[in-house]
Design a binder for these strands. Structure first.
Length: 103
DNA sequence: GAGGTGACCCAAG
DNA sequence: TCTTGGGCCACCT
């Protein structure tokens, strides 16, 4: 069988691509899927290679999207009808309770 | 080969 | 409910 890209980067990208529209996963869940606790490493990989994957479907356990891309992610969430929760301060966050994708 | 950095996580106040 | 501090792993230079 052909050796699928078992690089950490490719593993991360594969998991992110496996997230269906309208669903999201936390960095910790992605790292856990890889058998590692490297939630931060996932973020690093996303920062460099996330351009080729739906990075907006990967958010923090708090429900907030990428620290410097929340505005950009909001447009994608609205386009995919992703469940969102709006705080009194006008700050939005993903409804992990309903949108969290568990493999 | 070694060090610094980061689209983070968890626990406690 | 929100904020703070420390720890973890992998990638880049």
């Amino acid at each position: 069988m052909p050796a699928l890209q078992d690089d950490f980067v490719s593993r991360v990208l594969a998991v992110v691509e496996s997230i269906p529209p309208g669903r999201v996963m936390t960095y910790g869940d992605v790292a856990a899927s890889l058998g590692s606790r490297a939630a931060r490493a996932v973020g690093q990989v996303m920062a460099y290679y996330g351009s080729d994957v739906p990075w907006w479907r990967v958010i923090r356990s708090s429900g907030h999207p990428a620290q410097d891309h929340e505005s950009r992610a909001l447009e994608y969430f609205r386009a995919e009808s992703t469940p969102l929760l709006w705080s009194s301060s006008g700050v939005f966050r993903v409804d992990l309770r309903a949108a969290r994708h568990t493999p």
